[in-house]
Amino acid sequence: MVTLTDIKDASPRWLKDVGDTLTRSYGRRTAAARPVPDFLIIGTKRGGTTSLFNYLLMHPGVLGLFPQIRGRKSTDYFFKEYHRGEGWYRSHFHTDSYRRLVARSAGHRPVSGEASPYYQWDPRIAERVRATAPDVRAIALLRNPVDRAWSHHQERAANGVEPLGFEAALAAEEDRLAGELDAMLEDPAYYSAAYDFYSYRSRGLYLPQIQNWHASFPEGQLLVLRSEDMYSDVQGTFDTVCDFLGLPRFALPSTKPFNAITRSRIPPNARKELEDFYIRPNQDLADYLGRPLLWT
């Protein structure tokens, strides 16, 4: 059977663009009837955010971004699109009336949200989220920062923006990011591709990112999970997320990973260097969260 998604995929670019313009225009006109998101998956990059978002979409009580046929997981609103205003942001979420319709079949009010691993990393974003969606519940998936850095590098290399090998990229990170955070703090509209692309090592320093989120939201509105726990027990982690979001638990029909990169071996010297680098930060993170060391 031909589905709407099949038709969308087979459509030419111009038709998709026309469709996007029309639906966005409709969404903006009805923005007042569209609530802000209930949840955000805020990170970490290469930590399983795409997988978790897709698992959530399997839940009958979770709505994707409007229009759902586009299959997007993020609006990029809080960093690239902030200038478009809250109406534009709300246009990405389903209307109250649609939610009431879904609630009748689901038996509870459905929730909606988005996933962007940049939200956790950019220190300006938590406060922006609080101003827009003060009741939002955020989920942070934290992956062993050594494996995260390697996976991040592989992704950037596959994406055509990374000319350096992993070890050279780690060595160059300070120079590549020089001045970028200052520029971001000085210019609220500035999006730094370098801060996003080349932050292999620094992005694994999770504690300041969690503390930054906690500076804008109470502890109960942030769920911190280990990516490795989700990889080894998708259903168990999903149940935890459902509990956090106030959703009834749901047996996932599939636990296949999304957006995974073929596994490869991190160069041993780089692994050792990074493992040593993260010993103290990982301990500080565990102390802050009141948990055993997350990665040994």
Partner: peptide
């Protein structure tokens, strides 16, 4: 700039 940063050249 994106190419200079990609090569690891600091802005200075």
């Amino acid at each position: 700039a994106p190419f200079l940063r990609a090569a690891g050249a600091p802005p200075s």
